Simulated scan of single mutants.
Amino acid sequence: MQYIILNFISNLLGLGNASTPLGIKAMQELKDEQKAKKNATRSMIMLVVLNTASVQLFPSTVIALRASYASESPADILPCVWVVSALSLTLSVLSVFVFERICDKRRKNLK
Rank of each mutant, 00 (worst) to 15 (best):
P21M: 10
P21V: 14
P21C: 12
L22C: 06
L22S: 02
L22M: 14
G23S: 11
G23P: 00
G23I: 02
I24V: 15
M27S: 13
M27T: 08
Q28R: 08
E29C: 06
L30D: 00
K31V: 11
D32Y: 07
D32V: 06
K35W: 06
A36L: 08
A36Y: 01
K37P: 01
K37V: 14
K37N: 12
A40R: 04
T41Q: 07
T41C: 05
T41F: 05
R42N: 10
R42M: 11
S43E: 15
M44N: 06
M44C: 06
M44I: 03
I45A: 08
I45L: 14
M46N: 09
M46W: 01
M46L: 15
L47C: 10
L47E: 07
L47M: 13
V48K: 01
V48R: 00
L50R: 03
L50Y: 03
L50P: 00
L50F: 08
N51W: 03
N51Q: 14
A53V: 09
A53C: 14
S54T: 08
V55P: 01
L57E: 09
P59C: 13
S60P: 00
T61E: 09
T61K: 06
V62Q: 14
V62K: 09
I63T: 07
I63S: 04
I63Y: 03
I63R: 05
A64K: 09
A64G: 06
L65N: 09
R66H: 14
R66S: 14
A67Q: 12
A67W: 12
S68H: 12
S68P: 00
S68D: 15
Y69Q: 09
Y69D: 04
A70L: 09
A70Q: 13
S71V: 00
S71G: 12
S71F: 10
E72T: 14
E72R: 13
E72V: 13
E72A: 15
E72G: 14
S73I: 01
A75E: 14
A75K: 06
A75M: 11
A75T: 14
D76T: 15
I77T: 10
I77K: 09
L78Y: 02
L78R: 05
L78W: 00
P79W: 02
C80S: 12
C80D: 08
W82D: 07
W82F: 10
V83Y: 04
V84L: 12
V84P: 00
V84R: 03
A86H: 05
A86Y: 05
A86M: 10
A86K: 05
L87E: 08
L87T: 04
L87Q: 08
S88L: 10
S88R: 11
S88T: 13
L89K: 01
L89F: 11
L89Y: 07
T90R: 01
L91F: 13
S92K: 05
V93F: 01
L94A: 15
S95G: 01
V96M: 02
V96G: 02
V96P: 00
V96Y: 00
F97S: 07
V98E: 02
V98R: 03
V98G: 00
E100F: 04
E100Y: 04
I102Q: 13
I102K: 11
I102C: 06
D104T: 06
D104V: 03
D104H: 07
